[in-house]
Amino acid sequence: MATPCRHLDQIAVTTTDTRVCEDCVKLGDDWVHLRLCMSCGHVGCCDSSKNRHATRHFQRTGHPLVRSIEPGEHWIWCYADGVMPGELAD
């Protein structure tokens, strides 16, 4: 049986109007996909991107949950538990 996510009660942010990885913009780099920290609203690039800013944000802050903000994607990932606990409804 898969380990359940123990952090869903920490969701504070579910949407954003940001459509860039601001950390990559500062570096002059590109990104592949964007992830939204559901604790504080930080938008970072995915692990397929050169800088992996979403993962770095988790490592720096301990904020466990991110969601994809790519069009048509609604999944959530928990870094702390290493599981995908579900999706958000539109």
Rank of each mutant, 00 (worst) to 15 (best):
V20D: 07
S39P: 00
M1A: 13
Q10S: 08
G86V: 15
W75Y: 12
L88F: 11
G28C: 07
V25S: 09
P64V: 03
W75M: 13
G41F: 06
P85Q: 14
P71W: 14
A12P: 00
D23R: 14
R67H: 10
T3S: 10
G72K: 14
C40Q: 07
H53G: 03
L27A: 12
L88T: 10
C5S: 07
D47C: 09
Y79Q: 11
D9V: 02
S68I: 06
P71A: 14
F58D: 02
E87D: 12
S39G: 13
V20R: 09
A12S: 09
L36I: 05
G44N: 01
E22G: 12
R19V: 15
Q59N: 13
Q10I: 00
K50A: 14
C5E: 01
R6W: 00
C45S: 07
W77D: 00
V66G: 01
H74I: 06
C40A: 05
M1P: 04
C21T: 05
A54C: 14
W31M: 01
T61H: 07
D47N: 13
S48D: 14
L65M: 11
D30C: 11
H42F: 13
L27V: 05
D81T: 06
G72P: 06
R67Y: 00
P71R: 12
M38V: 03
L88G: 06
S39N: 12
Q10N: 06
I11R: 00
D23H: 08
A54Q: 02
M84S: 10
F58I: 08
C21K: 04
P71E: 12
G72C: 15
D29P: 01
D81C: 14
M1C: 10
T14I: 07
S48Y: 10
G62A: 07
L27S: 13
T15L: 06
H53V: 06
C21D: 15
W75K: 11
L8F: 05
R6T: 03
L36M: 08
C46H: 01
R67D: 04
T3Q: 08
W31I: 02
P64L: 06
